[in-house]
Amino acid sequence: MALYSEKVMDHFRNPRNVGEIPDADGIGEVGNARCGDIMKIYIKVKDGIITDVKFNTFGCGSAIASSSMATELIKGKPISQALELTNKAVAEALDGLPAYKMHCSVLAEEAIRAAIKDYYDKNGIEYDKSQFPEPDEDKEIHED
């Protein structure tokens, strides 16, 4: 069996929404280069809707595919819905990830949350802080 599903390979070979948004309303960056994964997600928001989203990722095939899939899943969606996106949903949309690559989907979820938090902070929007726990960089989450 191949390492990755066809869907992972498709999103890795043809990643959607690659790039930067110079006038982004929110930017989220998670991971660190030492561990070999950094995801940076840019969002544009209008009337509570994520109208555009782009990403840049330094990481393995599944990190790039997770970024691509996560941006697809939140594009055009209300912020409230984007906040509900879980790493599991990203992985499932990719037809699964190998167990030791699940942290890539976790990074994608965290990067989106970080971008939304940045948008809230920049615009002085009140929010429930418990919705945005600090990503713990020392702890790698591996879910089966």
């Binding site: 890795f12 561990c35 330094f58 990481g59 393995c60 095939g61 990190a63 690559k101």
Partner: peptide
Amino acid sequence: EGIEGEGLLLLLDDKGICASSGSACT
């Protein structure tokens, strides 16, 4: 600099080049 080895291997594999890397992901 600036890239991770696994992506490099997968894309080279698509071009018929079988290589390896010392990255953590591999």
